[in-house]
Design a protein around this nucleic acid. Structure first.
Lengths: 209, 209, 209, 209
DNA sequence: AATGAATGAGAGTTCATTCAT
DNA sequence: TATGAATGAACTCTCATTCAT
């Protein structure tokens, strides 16, 4: 069992058959919650999709809530794992954010249920919801501060900037990842990078304040 | 019949007493939905808060869903009405967005339930949810395009910029309006305005790309 | 007020306006009960059809049940009033029953709601239901006995015969009055008369196997 | 899968325990619907009688309506199964109808709830109601036509005769099966048989006034 | 470990009836 | 006499959870 994500949920399967059942339930839950939302989703619907008996659910999860929490953490981790690598290899911080946004939109296009699941945590399990966004924002803020130390960006208001960037990313992911794909992920990310680099106002150098 | 607010819900009260009851139910619903969320909220809880009988609810609303929809539209309109005026008097577009964000955070601080209600529409009544954010983004995009015509901002990718700005505003409202008030609305709005004006990267003029 | 049907329902209107309102409610009730049945029918539906306010209903009727009872008695009387006259002028008893059945089917074709209303009394107000059919059967039995005294029919088992005749009439009315009109009322009545006159078996007495 | 009773209702029990529970609910429903009628009957009343939890009802039936439909079909089949055998062994068609009516009245005396249940279908599930009576009448008509081919009865108007016979049977069952037992089933059946054989009119042709 | 029947609290909704105006 | 808002008991149905097998 990995140390970092030792879960307090217990109910870990002890046999191979068990592991397979648990995995089937988790996958089914992702579809069910994604398609119908937490409240409309039902345990019986999940076990039906998973092809296991209703009662088996409680062999692996304590409750509907516990399953949902596990799923939110899982998806949150998946986003991070998908985006984190591309941040490393960028030449500067703005380029890193650009690459991150592109990777994020790409990920979202392949996992459209992520919005319904993470956003619904606001109602089902506010702690998970707060944890997800607080952690994400903090990571961005740390990157910005490191970049500021390297002189790449201004160092004031890193937290505000972090939340602003996260907000942009989330809504652009919703708009161009889930709702429509009129623009390529790359186009969107480049437009945002330019905004981050020099703002919206043209001909910066010649403006008199 | 006024064109702007003609509601298709019927069930409008015909007496003063009726109007007062309907208003009481709406107010109670705002609290109940805000505090407990749509699914945890109950009609009986709402009528208890409103001080009317359970059955009276159905004198004015067709269903729990219909009430929720009415509420979402109502709050959506309220935000717009609160923010719109301050946009007019700004000297330029960036200043307008700054004023708008400040007004928005202020509004949110006085109506913290707005997030729970509008966001939950994603699950309860996706159409309202989409309508709210699509409309909001379009309004921003139009402002940007008008500003571009005046030479105040770049005119490319107005839609992307609009969604980016809306995303920033929403998350900053959540962070500094609902979750905490460590920074003044003005401080946050100024930080964002500077980002919009000239980006995150210092000493713009001397960078060689 | 006629002596014979002095109703204990009280709530008789005292003005012309009142009489018109009461009549409107009764007519509306006939349609509503006929179309939707007693339980699906609603007082508000009836008053809506009648074009009067909900509360006005209770000015003229004590309850939904009382209205229903009034209606059953009313329709029961109407059938009788429609059928009775034709019985008088028949040359013999079988001819009378033939004329009665024809008149009944004709009446039913113009008042298809009668079955739903009278039959539903079995559930809503069993006493009305029993009263309607017992009275009808007794009337037939008395006619048969009078006819037997005149030598027109056999005199044994008049009650059984009365119920048999009533049963035939009711189901033929349902079949050829309400459900379909493939045969004329006259054809049906003549077929039944022949059955009553000489039975179903051909050439009595001379049958060879 | 047996062809004859393949029910489209799904929700069939898979264990013996389940089969017993389903049966208990059906039996309880028969009593409850018979005593109180469809609308006054309640699911909770049924499950209370059956000695199972309220929720268990929905393990085996989709709705109150679905249960009612199942019951109507069940009782309709039971009558047929009870009456059909005695029709076979009669020497001629009139004798068959006599035996059938006797069997029917006997059955009704042991199952007085059958009228309330089948008749209420007119309001709750008109299709079942029509199906029951149309099918019954058709069966009688076919018997009459076969008998006509054998020269036992007249062959004209078989459908009218079938509905007439069914109507007699139904009302005589109500009168002497459910409402009172003043006459034996046999007496009633013999009186009807004589009517069918030779009509109501005495000594055809030799009557002197 | 797996099954699926059983449980019952709790929800939204309807509508006959009352009553203040 | 007429109105229509207010009432609340009662209903059907859902589903997370438990448990005997």
């Amino acid at each position: 069992m990995p140390v970092t994500t030792a879960s307090p949920d217990a109910k870990q399967p002890r046999t191979d058959r068990g592991r397979k059942t648990r995995r089937a339930i988790l996958d089914a839950a992702r579809s069910e919650f994604g398609e119908r939302g937490f409240h409309e989703a039902s345990i019986s619907g999940i076990t039906r999709r998973a092809g296991v008996a209703l009662g088996s659910f409680y062999t692996y999860f304590d409750s509907k809530d516990a399953l949902f929490r596990a799923l939110v953490r899982d998806m949150s981790d998946q986003v991070r794992d998908h985006v984190a690598p591309v941040l490393q290899s960028a030449p500067d911080q703005v380029a890193a954010e650009q690459a991150g946004l592109k990777a994020f939109i790409d990920f979202v296009r392949g996992h459209k249920e992520i919005y319904r699941i993470i956003d619904e945590a606001e109602f089902v399990d506010p702690e998970s919801f707060r944890a997800h966004y607080s952690t994400t924002a903090e990571r961005i803020a740390q990157r910005l501060e490191a970049a500021a130390a390297r002189g790449e960006v201004r160092g004031d208001h890193s937290e505000v900037h972090a939340w602003a960037i996260m907000g942009m990313n989330v809504f652009l992911g919703l708009r161009y990842g889930v709702w429509g794909e009129e623009l390529s992920a790359d186009t969107v990310a480049r437009a945002v990078a330019r905004l981050l680099r020099s703002g919206l106002v043209p001909e910066q150098g010649t403006q008199s304040g």
